[in-house]
Design a protein around this nucleic acid. Sequence first.
DNA 1: GCAAATTTGTTCGTATGTATT
DNA 2: CAATACATACGAACAAATTTG
Lengths: 261, 261
Amino acid sequence: MAQPIYQQIAEDLRSKIESGTYEPGTQLPTESDLGEQYQASRNTIRDAIKRLISLGLIETRPGQGTFVTLRVDPFVTVLTGDPKSDNDGEGASYLSKVSAKQREPSETIPKVEVLMAPEEITRRLGVPPGAQVVARHQQRFIDDVPWSLQTSFYPMELISQGATGLLMAQDIPGGTATYLAEKVGLKQIGYRDWITARSPDNMEQQFFRLPHDAVVFAVFRTAYDQDKTPIRVTVTIFPADRNQFIVNVGTDLPDPQYGDG
Amino acid sequence: MAQPIYQQIAEDLRSKIESGTYEPGTQLPTESDLGEQYQASRNTIRDAIKRLISLGLIETRPGQGTFVTLRVDPFVTVLTGDPKSDNDGEGASYLSKVSAKQREPSETIPKVEVLMAPEEITRRLGVPPGAQVVARHQQRFIDDVPWSLQTSFYPMELISQGATGLLMAQDIPGGTATYLAEKVGLKQIGYRDWITARSPDNMEQQFFRLPHDAVVFAVFRTAYDQDKTPIRVTVTIFPADRNQFIVNVGTDLPDPQYGDG
DNA sequence: GCAAATTTGTTCGTATGTATT
DNA sequence: CAATACATACGAACAAATTTG
């Protein structure tokens, strides 16, 4: 047996999908039917199907059937923006202009929380382990499709210095960078993004309606003030199946073209 | 049955792994033993194990057993470098200085090929569909661990204009950006990275020794000259389990700290 | 609104193959 | 070569979700 049966079947189905025999959005034969076609047990067919799911080619819907996935055109986010502006998403142009179709972004009102900072946040925010921080959570949608989950962390110190607006569960007009400049004289000189990818946790899986073997980007954005002190750490989770990123280096680059991705 | 048994078992094993009951590198009980412990069939145990594999927590070795994965500390690549320099990897400082330990990068001699450009390359390189391009392939290692697979595509036009060195299967001293400036007067003014994530194909799976449900970053770097014309498109594949990226925006940021990731 | 039919999801038992020690 | 451990494969039964009559 050169290759296991389930891999041979997966390979055959893959070629049929990519050649257009099964078109995007259409239904595949039922597991029982495929079992007849390939003279294999239902369990073996299911192993083949699992492989194709993990490749992102098909999806199963209990009670309905197995379908060829529709490729949504991805949302593209430009990470290199204005060093001094927010770019933490709260009222900022996090969304790129790449998409040809007009898209309708929306977001929830921030949910505010005071908590002990997780370890990976204390490191980035430069606060001692166990320090209290303000966390502002937001969910974002594009055309009503869940797009990103975002949490910004601020040192409690900023509150006592006068930036009490950070505790308000509402948007901050003009963005938090402007607000912090006014209230506590902090000038943001830039930020650093740290891009990682991993499996979604349960909450993320539910919110984005992802299969459990999907992948999300986790982008950690740390913003710095004039003293090179971290002002804010923003963690944004993006499902990898519907998100891409652009990094521009140098000036005067041509605009990115729709369809380049 | 609130949750399926295999998910309950996966959850229990996960907590034992994360609490240190099973330490990284150590072996888990055999599937049969776990079946006894949890009063479940071996197939159900295997379903739980598959979940933990897709989370990247454990790995199985036929004939040996199931082991808790060792977390390698990730390689961190800074994407925002010098707009005018190569940064395509050929002799450039693609490797960051974040790692505390001294690491030993190495790479293969470029393999050169002339071929019809894949569709996604023609779009980015701004050449007509079906155009011939020069492709330069390289494999990169860090401490002998496969780190990235890279292919740079150049328009054939550059060869006829005198940049014949692109056809040589050897490193280009000083980098290709400098070389192209000398030979054909092309000045690189910057580049754009397009970051995506997907499942590995068969070749990538083999080279990086990845499970078939792993994830890789695919970074498309397009370099532009003074006329905003694409000079080169470099596609680099990074396994997500051992790679992260940094994007710096603004000047005078503090150095990234080892351990921030 | 309900019941039946259809389809995928979970679980078990069993047998055999393949890789490693 | 034998023992051990994971990988593949089949058959069967029931559960859960969805659609249809």
